[in-house]
């Protein structure tokens, strides 16, 4: 199961994920992220209570990280995976994405 929340702030879109980032749930997150990234402003993805991330999930996170999404996570396992991904796929400069219009 996966639960995805999207919050629109004036300066950023915050996507919060609970559950498992595996199998078809990866597609669900991908769809949400595409929508979030179509809006102006910074996009932040927070893995709040993610118990497992499979290969597809890791690939998506890596892809998101390389396109400028700011990743963060809670929990030793998720945080470790995120830190590894961030190390392997540094973010693009944020200047490319301007602040959102109110």
């Amino acid at each position: 199961m996966i639960r995805i929340f999207t919050a629109n702030d004036p300066m950023a879109v915050r996507v919060t994920v609970d559950g498992q980032l595996v199998d078809d749930y990866v597609d669900a997150l991908n769809a949400c992220m595409s929508q979030a990234m179509s809006q102006p402003g910074q996009v932040q993805l927070f893995l709040r209570d993610v118990s497992h991330i499979d290969e597809r999930g890791r690939s998506l996170l890596a892809q998101l990280a390389s396109t400028g999404v700011k990743l963060s996570a809670a929990g030793v396992y998720s945080a470790y995976i995120v830190s590894e991904i961030c190390r392997e796929h540094p973010r693009e400069p944020e200047a490319e994405r301007g602040p959102r219009q109110p």
Binding site: D49, S51, H52, G75, V76, Y77, S78, A79, Y80, I81
Partner: peptide, 23 residues
């Protein structure tokens, strides 16, 4: 083993309502 350890720590910590952020 490190990844598995982190995975099980997070899993059991969450189950028992503990906050463990360092191994």
């Amino acid at each position: 083993i490190p990844l598995l350890t982190r995975y099980f720590v997070q899993k059991h910590a969450q189950k028992m309502g503990r906050t463990i952020d360092t191994i």
